[in-house]
């Protein structure tokens, strides 16, 4: 049956409309889980709040389990879903830069916009910083291009490249995630409470 748009169950033109609806829902959930607070976001690095880890890990687990059940029952064709292309060094360097920005600024790009929406000044500065970064990147694009386009490994997934059964992988991933939740709770109890 699904995915809906590639199978023409919904006309292609609805793409943007659906994107806006999902975007609004995403923003709403980010804001209501308190992700527009930079202190809450940075808490995961200092060990006093692990909401980010829990929310994103839970979301990943729920969606991966859901998608595989839907694929099993025939609601979604798993092989038709979009797999993000893998550029090795682009991902590594980009990830490191983003991580530094995350610790220092306390936002990731999505949540910064969320925080701008509720009027946080630090988030506005952060977004200006993003713009400057975008500007630098596009000005020096020819310089960055070999990294940006190089080391391309195709649209691969972990289970394909390691050649393991995706079902077992999901089970281990789930157990790993829950252990991570338990550990993070223990860490949080040890760390001195921070009020923010």
């Amino acid at each position: 049956m699904g995915p809906l748009i590639p199978n023409d169950l919904i006309p292609f033109e609805w793409n943007l409309v659906i994107a806006i609806i999902i975007g609004i829902a995403f923003g709403y959930i980010l804001e209501s889980s308190g992700f527009s607070s930079s202190r809450k976001l940075a808490g995961v690095f200092y060990g006093y709040d692990f909401a980010v880890l829990k929310v994103f890990f839970t979301a990943a687990l729920v969606s991966v389990i859901g998608i595989f059940y839907m694929d099993y029952l025939g609601y979604v064709d798993f092989s038709m879903l979009y797999v993000h292309p893998f550029y090795l060094w682009g991902a590594l360097i980009g990830g490191a830069i983003m991580g530094v920005g995350f610790v220092a600024g306390g936002f990731c790009p999505g949540t910064s916009l969320c925080a701008v929406a509720i009027g946080k000044i630090d988030a506005m500065i952060y977004v200006i910083g993003i713009m400057i970064g975008v500007f630098i990147f596009s000005e020096f694009y020819s310089f960055f291009e070999p990294i940006y386009d190089g080391y391309f490994y195709g649209n691969i997934t972990l289970t394909e490249s390691l050649n393991i059964s995706p079902y077992w992988f999901i089970l281990f991933f789930t157990i790993f995630g829950i252990i991570a939740f338990a550990l993070s709770d223990m860490v949080r109890k040890k760390v001195k409470k921070v009020f923010y």
């Binding site: 059940y69 079902y167 077992w168 999901i170 789930t174 157990i175 829950i178």
Partner: peptide
């Protein structure tokens, strides 16, 4: 409740492993 939810997730994931697999054809 958190323990229950965690157990629920593991059970669901385990269910995926245990489901009888049929070969899918394109």
């Amino acid at each position: 409740r958190y323990v229950l939810l965690a157990v629920g997730l593991i059970l669901l994931a385990g269910g995926l492993v245990l489901l009888p697999k049929q070969e899918k054809h394109k």
